[in-house]
Design a binder for these strands. Structure first.
Length: 224
DNA sequence: CCCTGATTCGC
DNA sequence: GCGAATCAGG
């Protein structure tokens, strides 16, 4: 198995979402727990729950060990100086536990995308430059809502349900009980549905208000 | 022992 | 760059 962008994205999501390396490895398939950890480090994301501090309270992870590894290791292993792990508390996206009554499940979407300026090549709506305040690169979405325990995940699109035919736009935070993906039919040729393409690919309209051939950002998304 | 992530190091 | 082997704490 190779580390495709998709798999890396999944790794990042789950890692940042609090999933353990074992779970991520199981999810990705074809890779070991160590592979996940190693890749995570190479990607720059590391630390978080320290090696041996907070222990998870779950026993639902039976480990499938297929390859018995005989390790005739005679190589002397120098006592690792144990490069001091930076005890930096990784910025956990933990939503503040709102002490408020949980009767309010979903504070509705935030007001977005009021104006439509033109239509992109894929058919999605393109926004004008004035419609966005901060830069929003292609994989941002983090709703600022606490969490909604109420809606049991019914037909939500889970990580396992992702395919090249459904919108991969994440809904909610990874790790939250109801984290899922949009799941709508994709805008053909894009990893997102039409609506989320409009959010993922925000074309930069020239100030002079012209330039017929609007280049797709990033040279266009990949499709697999 | 089980789990966890961290690190090393041969490939 | 990859990941098995290994280390180390809970």
């Amino acid at each position: 198995m190779s580390w495709t962008d998709e798999r890396i994205a999944t790794l990042k999501k789950m890692w940042e979402g609090g999933s353990t390396a074992s779970q991520i490895a199981e999810e990705l398939g074809g890779v070991s727990r160590n592979a996940v950890i190693g890749k995570a480090h190479r990607l720059g994301l590391k630390s978080r729950p320290s090696p041996v501090k907070a222990n998870e309270k779950k026993k639902a992870a039976p480990k499938a060990k297929a390859p018995p590894k005989p390790a005739p290791k005679a190589a002397p292993k120098p006592p690792a100086p144990k490069a001091a792990a930076p005890a930096k508390p990784a910025a956990a996206p933990t939503p503040a536990p709102s002490a408020a009554v949980p009767s309010q499940p979903l504070p509705d979407k935030r007001p977005d995308l009021p104006k439509i300026v033109s239509v992109g090549p894929g058919g999605f709506l393109r926004q004008g430059p004035g419609d966005q305040q901060p830069p929003i690169p292609p994989a941002p979405p983090r709703r600022l809502v606490p969490a909604k325990p109420d809606p049991s995940i019914a037909d939500k699109t889970s990580l396992l349900d992702l395919s090249d035919k459904v919108c991969r736009w994440p809904m909610g935070h990874p790790g939250e009980p109801d984290f899922h993906f949009c799941g709508e039919a994709v805008n053909p040729g894009f990893p997102y549905c039409v609506e989320h393409c409009g959010r993922a690919y925000q074309a930069q309209l020239p100030r002079g208000a012209r330039r017929p051939p609007p280049p797709l950002p990033f040279g266009g998304p990949r499709v697999r």
